[in-house]
Design a binder for these strands. Sequence first.
DNA 1: CCAGACGTTGTT
DNA 2: GTCTGG
DNA 3: CCAGACGTTGTT
DNA 4: GTCTGG
Length: 243
Amino acid sequence: MCGRFTLFAGADDLGERFSVSVPAEYSPRYNVSPSQPVPLIGDDDPGRIQFRTWGLLPEWADDATEHGYINARAETIEEKPAFRSAVRRRRCLVPADGFYEWTGDRGSRQPYRVAFGDDRLFAMAGIWERWEGPRRQTGLDDFGVSGEEPAGSDGRDEPPTEVRETVAILTTAAAGPVAEIHDRMPVIFPPDREREWLDADDEERRAELLRPFEAPGFRAYRVSTAVNDPGNDEPALVEPMGS
DNA sequence: CCAGACGTTGTT
DNA sequence: GTCTGG
DNA sequence: CCAGACGTTGTT
DNA sequence: GTCTGG
């Protein structure tokens, strides 16, 4: 799965760890949730952190109010119409220093945080998408300037009325301590192979990178149910609660 | 051919 | 039960 | 992912 | 856009 995560590293640490520039709007997060902006490193501009909305909206979606896909299964991502074009041409790394998993029944969901003992940063596999709303079809621009535009234009030269950039996180079989509480987890790369994902235009190379990686040193520990509410976002959320 | 879906997770 | 919002 | 809403009318 | 179902 992976429907929540943490990224509370300082801007300097984040920039240094991934060799990227970090924009001023970056701030530490203890409960990043679907529908929110996610800091990521995209293959379109791998030298900086960008923000894209969590919930991938395919280019053919009818409107931007539809539910996006927050996860994509690594095992089938090459075949699925919703993900195929993105995995071929629009990949990204999603930096994190932990992610949350839940156990128990609805109404009493117990969250766990999975992270390295020292909370060091790692990279999750992502794909992103650009969704463009309908274009005007008037053939005139906003100031009524008559250009080369012939009447009855199909609007292809007009700017889209709305542009949304979204992201989904890839999942795979859980490995190591995560398997104790869950059967799925985000795809995580060994640090020395992260950059290959952004450059993996070949399907066999992607398959190689997407194999489950049992990150040495990962731990899962119980945290407060305050994590359940996406509106909560403070350092106390990552404090251990005891078994 | 056209119409309609296109996804993951967890839970019962 | 199912959808929407964060 | 979980939490919370889930509806209409008329009036200010 | 592209695939599946009828």
